[in-house]
Write a protein that binds this DNA or RNA. Structure first.
Lengths: 235, 235
DNA sequence: AATAAGCATATCGTATACAATTTACGCGTC
DNA sequence: GACGCGTAAATTGTATACGATATGCTTATT
């Protein structure tokens, strides 16, 4: 496995930047759910001691991106179906309010910025390859986060950062199509509503959009015996 | 200052229990906003090394209960007026949805439990003294958290735990009356609505209730020059 | 050959050590 | 007495050390 994590070598990392680097890697799926994050290994990669790595892993565990098991270590989180439902239920509760508030506050330059993101997003859907896919995933999340930022509530923004990141994990585990391609046009419709300052429409579109993302997931409880079947085909 | 923190002496504390003990102390105001939390001192109190204290403080800083300044240390958070507004804005966005969901799911035994809490709360409003006040503050928060628990969404519950705790800080800093006594009757009205499974009423009552809590705060920006006035009266 | 036991290795949990930074205090100057 | 400066003490930031727990492999036993 190539050590793609520390993009900028020979840099001095602190706990914060390690946390950010790991989160980026988790969110755009360079680190698969379930991957073990050994403190020593991560420390070697970033050229820091376990102390800083532990701080970063603990922070990520508060965000729900990493699960730590006592005396066993830290793993990239693998949300259960129920957990995934709660992630999207929470988003459906919060995001309508956010987009409504964004409607009130959005400035022309911010509409511009969102259109920019849409353009980039559209360009990426055309490209092939895993790098483009990762960029697309990130762009899709950034869209929601940008709206949260426009809404101007730092607490809600942080909640959304957590929810978007965990959504990415849920999609990684339970997603069926690689990327729900309908998402792009829905994003466009939301920006249109924002531009019209049509709060009701924006909120409704947002809920539908989240519903669509969730609909692409197969959240059925997997029977452990099914694992045998799944592997039996290979072995 | 008496070291009231480790209630149970000669116990072995881990990062988790230290975090909980500190949070309890912050939430029911045995630790005032702005108080410095020196790692060594806290460690001595709990008879652990700075390692565990740091972990606890980092966790609390993620929850917004503690602010850490690089190379300066950790302090009990003292939310700004804007931050306080965002705390209550977020609650007004989230709690209606929570109480509506609780309406759908609540069981008779849970209504019983809420009534129990109301009884306790009423008893405490009658009593005098700082201990009773602290218990009252905690009881008031527990009411909201119990409803969140009934709603059955672990993520929202965690968000609410953070918001309730930070609300307590905001009230400590900007609250005018010691405790808004109208809160108790409003809690009762909410339970009544839950019992009737009247989701609309419950949500509306909840928003009003939060508005009332917020109305008891004086969130005007304090001019630093006012500090001189405030102290001038004493010196 | 399968299983169990025991030892070696890897990894985690916590304390301690030491460097870097901030804070506090004493002293001289104006 | 107020202000600036320099040194000492306190505190934080990070690395390392060491005991505890888990993991994996070897070997003995059936």
């Amino acid at each position: 496995m190539p050590s793609t994590l520390p993009q900028t070598p020979d840099q001095d990392f602190d706990a914060q930047s390690i946390r950010d680097a790991l989160r980026d890697a988790i969110v755009d799926r360079r680190l698969a759910p379930g991957t073990k994050l050994t403190e020593g290994d991560v420390g070697t990669l970033f050229k820091v001691s376990r102390t800083l790595v532990r701080a970063a892993l603990q922070a990520l565990s508060y965000e729900g991106l990493v699960t730590v098991e006592k005396n066993r270590g830290a793993f990239v989180a693998s949300p259960s179906p129920e957990e995934s439902r709660q992630i999207f239920a929470t988003r459906k509760l919060i995001e309508p309010g956010i987009v409504m508030e964004a409607c009130r506050l959005i400035a022309p330059s911010q509409i511009q910025l969102l259109r920019q993101l849409l353009l980039e997003e559209g360009r990426l859907t055309g490209e092939r390859g895993p790098t483009a896919r990762r960029a697309e995933i990130k762009a899709s999340g950034d869209f929601h986060l940008t709206i949260a930022q426009i809404a101007g509530n730092a607490i809600l923004l942080r909640f959304m950062e957590e929810l978007v990141a965990r959504s990415s994990l849920a999609i990684a585990v339970y997603g069926q199509s690689v990327v729900s391609s309908c998402g792009h046009s829905e994003h466009q419709a939301i920006v249109d509503a924002l531009e019209r300052r049509d709060a009701g429409a924006a909120a409704a579109l947002m809920v539908h959009h989240i519903d669509h993302i969730e609909a692409d997931l197969d959240l059925r409880e997997r029977d452990p015996t099914d694992l045998k079947n799944a592997l039996g085909a290979l072995v």
